[in-house]
Amino acid sequence: MEVTAARAWVRRINRLIISLVAVLTLSFLMIQLIPGDPVRTALGPDAPQELVLERTHQLGLDRNIFIQYINYWKNVFTGNLGDSIIYGTPISSMLAARAPNTLILVAMSMVATLVLALLGGVVVGIVTRSSRLTSLRLFFNMSTAWVGALPSFLLAPVFVYFFAMRAGWFPIAFASGYKWFVLPLAAIALGTIANLSRIVRSSTEKVLGEDYILVARSKRLPRRRIYFRHALPNLLTAALTIGGLQVGAAVTGTIVVEQVFAIPGLGQMLTTAIVQGDFPAAQICMLIFATSVLVVNLVVDILLVFFDPRAGREVGQS
């Protein structure tokens, strides 16, 4: 078993490395694919030719594409990310001011999603198992389906209206302190919690109907032990797989709520950069988002090997 698990981890880390190389290459190619002269597009038709040439040279865009590619790798790993075309300021200092807000929102919403959805889904799954409390199950399924379908760009302004404008409990937009954080987090995580908890509930019900749970009951184990020791590890597989996919929704939600709450974050930096044609900035934001999605999925995969001893073997077979 130890050997299979180790092999499974090596396999997953290999996959992560390949994916990261692909993401790095694609984000590099992104700029090459822009039709016309991207620097000219960014600076506008009125910019003097000298300035365009100077920026082009500064960005190294006048060199051989292979040298550019090698330099891109070098720069990413040394943290020398270059300057914004529009502002001329170092991208690394722009990131330093913005990345923490975004990463905190994404990380917190992932944590909130996994913890609350697991807790809620398992509890509702236990009390509604084998057709008990059908009306609760119906209500739970309907409400989570509806809430899960509500986009952050609807939830965020609704929260602002009720809890900031009317009740005055939270600031309307980004502010100092920790209170600004509550409404954006709720707007991001409510949907992912709803979606994940619905899946956790149904897989809880499914796992509780498995033969090995009947066996555990025939051994007259305490309920607590049946639920936590016998059922939980088996439903974590499904819950974590789907839970890992929620990072995509969390990233999208974060980009959206940054817009609603005027939070200076990577999402705002990315969209502004796209509109302004500030492609070096867009490139780095893209790279960070993509990398974090990949890394979260890897962490989930590793946790899966930990909880589900078969995971290592399944990969080997496929």
Binding site: S19, L26, M30, I31, L33, I34, P35, T41, G244, L245, V247, G248, A249, V251, T252, I255, L270, T271, I274, V275, G277, F279, A282, Q283, M286, F289, A290, V293, L294, N297
Partner: peptide
């Protein structure tokens, strides 16, 4: 599998960098 795990909006933003908003 990797691409499905990727948020649609992020992929769309990638395209937007290339073709412009």
């Amino acid at each position: 599998n990797v691409m499905i795990a990727f948020p649609a909006v992020l992929l769309a933003l990638f395209v937007a960098v290339i073709v412009g908003a």
